[in-house]
Each structure stands twice: as C-alpha cells, then as structure tokens.
Design a binder for these strands. Structure first.
Lengths: 366, 366
DNA sequence: GCTATCGTCTGGATCGTTACAGAACCAGGC
DNA sequence: GCCTGGTTCTGTAACGATCCAGACGATAGC
C-alpha cells in the first residue's frame, strides 16, 4: 500500500479513498465501479456500490472529477442585465428552453449569469466553472463578452454581438424586417412608423434620429431598422419621414406608453412596424385605448411570432422565426464544440411573414 | 527548485505554474497576486498581472480552485420538469430573479436543472458541481429531490416538498386561501367553485374528488384547498358541493378551457376561487367568451398577486404574496448556509388579500 | 549587538478524482 | 513447460490550484 493508502485520518468526508480502504481495494477500482463498469468484475462492482450506499457515499466529487476530466457539466449562459428580463421576454424563454433540452442530453445544466458591468460581476464571470459559454443577445462591446471569450472555452453567440471566430446563431433580421414593412406598403399604407427596442444601454425613450439608428449598440436592431428602411425606399417613400420610436424596454407596457403619443398626433400613421411582438402587443393596446380599431384604423406588424402573437386579439401579423429551434441549434453547436469538433458559423435561419388579423389596407380617408 | 517547478513540459495550457516559471517566482506568489494582494509587494503583483495579461493568462482555473476551496460559485436550482414552465410562470420568474440578485453579491450564478425522473437526468444532478441546492416547488417524493439532498450540500426548499432538517421558504397558503374564499362568502356568494393547479404529475383535467384532493402530490395545492374548504365550512356551506376543477397546467389557456364547462352548466357558480393568478386570468377570459360580466355575473379571486393580476382587465382581486422577496429570502438563507451558519426554518411569510375589480356581490337573481 | 517584529516570498502538502502502465492470475495452445 | 492473450485489479502520476508553516532579510527596540 502506498503512503496515501495507509493514511489513517478519520476523514469526516466521504471520498473514494474512504470507500476503497473500507473495502480493501484501490481507489482506481472504486472509480471504475462508477465510471467504467467493464473494467471490473460485476460481483466486485456490486459489492462496492452496495457498501457505498450503506455508508452514504453518493458518488465521486463533481469538482474533483471536473478538474481531472476538464468538464463540469455546465454551460454558462450570459444573459442581458437582469434575469427577470431574460425570463420575461418570450423570445428568450423559448430559446433557453430549447437550449436546455438539447444540452441536457449530455447531462449539462445551464449556469445563468447576468451580464453586469461592475468589476465584481466581471470577476464572477471569469471565475465561473463552465464547459462553454453561450452569449445571448448582448450589445456590441459589452465588457462581459470579452471576459467570457477570453477564458479559452468554446463560445456560441446568439444574434449578437459578432465576435471574430465565434459561431453566431441568428436569423436574417434585415430581410425579415423588409418583408414586414413591404407587407404594409403593398397593402397601401403610406404613413408608417416603427417601434424599436432599446438601441443602447442608456434606456432612452422617444424618436431615434438617423445617427442614433446607425450607432445602435444592438446589432439586431440595426439590422431590422436597415431592413425596414430598405422596404420604405423600395416603396418610393422617404425613410427620414418615418418616425422611429425607441422604447425603454421590450415590454408591452413600455411600448403602449411610447405608442400613445405616436398615435395621438394629427398625422398619425396607418401602419406600424413593431420590431418585436412584445412591442406590437403594446401598440395594439394603445390603439384600442385611443379608440382606434386594429386593423381597421391601424395595421400592426410584429416580429418573432411569439406564442402571445398567436393568441392575441386580433392575432398578430408577424415575422416568424423558429424560437425554440434556435435554442436547440445553439445546443447542437455547443455539444459539438465540447466534443472537439470544429464548428462553423451556420447560415442565418430563414424567416417568413405570417399574415394574421392585425393588418389590412389603410382606412379610406387615410 | 522542486521537481514540479523544474518540469519542462511545453504546456499548451496556461496555468499559474507557467506564469510562475516565466517570472521566476513561486506558484504561491502568483496565486497570491490574484487572491491576496496584501500578501505580496504591490510592485511584484503589478509585474505578475502585467505579464499575465501579456501571455493571455486570464486567472486561476475555476475548477481547480473549486476543488481546493470547496466552492464553485454556483447555486443549483432544481426546477419543475421543463425550463419553459419555470420561465412562463410569473411566480417562478420573479422568484428566480430575486434569488439571482441576492446571490450574485457573492459572485454566485444559478445552475438550472430541470427535475426529470429518468436515470440519466438523476445522474446529471448527482454530478452537478454546485455549492448549494435550491429546490423549487416540486411534488412530494420526487426522486430528484432525494438526489440533491443526499449530496451533502446545503439545501433550501421553496414551498414544497418539506424535507427533514431542511429550511423551507414559504407562505401560509392555507390562511391565504381561507381569506380569499371568505371574501367571496362575505360578499354573499353561495355557489362557489375552485380551480386547482395540477394536483399530481399525471396531468389530469377535470373534477377532483375528495380523495384526489387529499392525496395531491403538491403540498401547496393541498394547503390551499384545505384553506378554501375551511372558509366554505365557516360559511355554513358544504365543501363536497363545491366543484374543484383540476387544470392540466398553470396557464391561462388551460384554465380557460377548464372554466368553460364549469361556467356553461345551468347552476354555474357566481364566485370562483382560482388558486393562482394565471388560472384566474383564464377564468376571466372564459367568462368573457361566454358573455358573462366580471365581476357583474361572476366574481373571481386569484392567488399570488403577479404583475399580470394588476394590469388585467378587470384588475384581479387576489391573495398577495411577496414574490420577488421570496427569491431574495432564499438567497439570504443560501448565503448564510454557505458561510457555515446554522439556518433555521423561517416562519411562513404573511399574505393578505388585495381587493381589486374582479369581485363583487353576486347578481340579484344568483 | 542581539533579539523581536514585520513584510515578502517559497516549498511542500493537499483537495478528490481519473488516466495509464503494468502486475497478478488464469486458461488455452503448441 | 513456455508463451500468448485476456481479465481484473493496483499503484503512481497527474489535473491546477490554495493553504500553511516557515525562511529570509530588513527594520526597530532595547
């Protein structure tokens, strides 16, 4: 027996060694009983497991195993700012669900960390024990992204920000937005407006000028606005004349507040492109509060095709993106990367317009 | 120099040792540069950190540190079945948000694991590297609960199930339900009905008889039903005559489906106690679809006081429990337990009825 | 000048596991 | 009898860090 084997500490904690000494076998054998059943006789394995249960030993220590194997069984997920936001946004919820479902096949859990900017939070990210990181829809240049990217573990980005050499799972936001706005112009709408999610971290509310649109920190919004602009130009209209209203948060309430003044004016729009379904729901609510009929007086197009869009009253015309699928696709990439495969950047998923009840031709007088 | 120090592997990976050799100092000193700045001269520390940045060394390996220190910086959260459920339920969302906010002060993240029953999933739980577990509202006797409880780490349970020696953060469900139903009886309602969340894992839908109520796997529902029964008895009514309808999921849609048949009958109730706000929202929706006015024809009381209850139309009368606070309280317990403090079972939080617009005296003819 | 104290830094032990090379044993074939 | 091959088990060396007791100078106090 080696020195270690002979050591006779009373050992409050239960370890492989405890068990091995108790049974008079080597640590390696106990380890094999758990990890490689084919490496020892079934009889001995049975004996080991039985004695383990007796002593209350519940298996190898996860951290020690993690160190040795280089795996902990956790996928880090960097979500925007507060968890409640990540949980309130249906897009995000379905994404996380899809991701969790996919990675749980490998026994992986999701380690959620909000992407805060303070040093303590950044340090916590650097210290987080994960096998890979998923960065979910963060603004360009967020310091937390650099931290996780520098840890040398596989990284998969969702939507944004683009990182050199890092696969991004996303959709063709621009063409989705173009389709949405084109739907409105083809219906005959000439007075349009756009509702935008936050364009920066400063939580501004109100008209976003061209400069603000161009310098938006969220790439997704930059792309959707650009797509919308393209459709507007295509219809022979002036993009500068289309009010783009930035909302403080991607929530119906905030959108309703923002939409109220937009719809109260004299030259109110007849067609609104809301860049997410959450915003679209708010627009519909505001319209109703002002006595406007949707789609009679006002057409609203959303984006995402969240569950709420389907069950809304009226059901929302929206750009459909495969929400839960995205999570799953990210999970597939993560699993592949963890198996050492080189993963390329997948092409953006296709999006298509789903026409429902929230859009119609503009009112006669409009 | 020791044998280890002399070792001249090319070392693809960057470790403390790499850096120490490069700088001609000991591993301990490099470690101190990161963890105990007061243990070495500022000049040397600066030199170490600078060189680390140069070489691209981003700090000590989290797993090795985890093994040595006995901490990984993760709180495991065992959530019911699928993550999307945990994310869709506002109760759960606010709870998780409160928990995350609290524990992030210690740099802890939330490791989410769905509580599945298959062996692979249970194994994944046993192998999860966490400092503590939070069990969120699981049915009695769920095998996953045993697994996490047996790992020897601190455990805090939310609502249910009760575990010997484990602190539970919860509310006085029974008295909350009693208050809610009493509110209806005091308004003069005599024909009552109750909507219940799932009582078991078998996702049944329909009337739940006394036996089913008594043997419900979810303690929270057992308590709320018992509380409701008490109020009914108090009003001199027969609990057996009050239909208790079990809904397949805690969602407005499912509740609306279940409520439809309840409200369609000839002797439809004039007052419904929905055991969660989600269910209450569904009842209101179903009532409206049937042409019943709330609260004119039907009074509805919810439970939880979720954000949706406040902004619903009409705003829901409901039993208010401090949702985000609960998360924070759990976080406090977890942090305390991790600091080695003995944590007792805190008393259940107080709940109170918030009377809003969804309740009124029964219609005259009723 | 001699000890006590302080601030810095080092070496070795340790955390609990898994990977790997090889020992011990048995059976079978020539 | 000797070699080959297979199964089963052992011992040692990592994995990458942190903790702790002490070494080493320099400074201060007497």
């Amino acid at each position: 027996m080696s020195k270690a084997e002979r050591s006779d500490t009373p050992s409050g904690r239960l370890t492989l060694l405890t068990l091995a000494r108790d049974l008079g076998v080597s640590r390696a054998t106990v380890s094999n009983a758990y990890n490689r059943p084919d490496q020892l006789s079934p009889a001995l394995r049975e004996r080991i497991l039985a004695r383990a249960a007796e002593l209350g030993f519940t298996g190898p220590d996860p951290m020690a195993r993690g160190l040795r194997r280089g795996r902990v069984g956790a996928v880090g997920v960097l979500v925007d700012e507060s968890l409640s936001y990540a949980f309130s946004d249906p897009t995000s919820v379905l994404f996380l669900d899809g991701l969790a479902r996919e990675v749980q096949a490998d026994g992986l859990g999701l380690l959620l960390h909000p992407a805060r900017r303070d040093p303590a939070a950044l340090q916590a990210l650097a210290d987080a024990a994960v096998d890979a990181w998923v960065v979910q829809s963060l603004p360009d240049g967020h310091p937390a992204v650099d931290v996780v990217a520098s840890r040398g573990r596989p990284v998969v980005v969702v939507d944004q920000p683009a990182l050199p050499g890092v696969p991004v799972v996303g959709i063709d936001d621009a063409s989705g937005a173009t389709t949405a706005v084109r739907h409105l112009t083809r219906l005959g709408h000439r007075r349009l407006a756009v509702l935008a999610m936050p364009l920066g971290c400063d939580r501004r509310q109100g008209r976003a000028d061209a400069e603000r649109q161009r310098t938006a920190e969220y790439a997704v919004m930059r792309r959707r606005l650009a797509g919308a602009a393209a459709a507007v130009a295509e219809a022979g209209l002036d993009w500068a004349g289309v009010p783009v209203v930035e909302v403080t948060a991607n929530e119906p309430d905030a959108a309703a507040r923002a939409a109220r003044e937009l719809l109260a004016g004299p030259d109110r729009p007849t067609g609104v492109f809301a860049s997410t379904d959450q915003l679209a729901l708010g627009v519909v609510r505001a319209a109703r509060a002002l006595g406007l009929a949707v789609p009679g007086d006002l057409s609203v197009v959303g984006f995402d095709d969240s569950p709420a869009a389907r069950s809304a009253e009226p059901p929302l015309t929206t750009v459909a993106q495969p929400l839960r699928d995205r999570g799953q696709r990210v999970g597939v990439l993560v699993r592949a990367a963890l198996q050492g495969e080189e993963v390329g950047v997948p092409p953006p998923a296709v999006v298509g317009l789903v026409v429902r009840g929230s859009t119609a031709p503009p009112p006669r007088g409009g």
